[in-house]
């Protein structure tokens, strides 16, 4: 079963920017984009090794919603986790939703086992 974890009130999420959350020991970067969609990916930047994806700039490339690593500026697709500058690399994508005004995240591992 998907194990949803409460993160924070939905109002606490900035628009077009991310926050980091600690979910069962995992660091998750949660974003709300200007069209009010939520995205959750691993906070781990595969290029620098630092836990900083939540501090990147969000935006778009073509139709895709993206976040750019603040360290070396690689751009990732928020939907799929795919790095658009280096197709061999991806971020782990987690599940995210708003439930009763609260943001909830489910880690990818738990989602898989569901």
């Amino acid at each position: 079963m998907t194990q949803w974890r409460s993160i924070c009130p939905a109002a606490r999420l900035p628009v077009e920017r991310g926050v980091a959350a600690l979910v069962d020991g995992e660091q998750v970067a949660v974003f709300r984009t200007s069209d009010d969609r939520l995205h959750a990916v691993s906070n781990h930047d595969p290029f620098s090794g630092a836990m900083v994806i939540s501090r990147g700039i969000v935006g778009s490339r073509g139709e895709r919603h993206t976040v750019a690593s603040p360290v070396f500026k690689q751009v990732f697709d928020l939907e799929t986790g795919q790095c658009l500058d280096d197709p061999a690399v991806s971020l782990v994508v987690h599940l995210v939703r708003v439930h009763d005004g609260v943001v909830e995240v489910a880690l990818e591992a738990q989602a898989l086992s569901a």
Binding site: T2, E26, R37, L38, S42, H44, P46, E79, T80, G81, Q82, V89, S90, L91, V92, V93, L95, V96, R97, V98, H99, L107, E108, A109, A111, L112
Partner: peptide
């Protein structure tokens, strides 16, 4: 750290996202 395998999740993302 990143203890999980790195791969795409298009499959499950669909329909689940709020």
């Amino acid at each position: 750290g990143p203890t999980l395998p790195v791969r795409h999740l298009d499959r499950i993302v669909e329909g689940v996202r709020a």
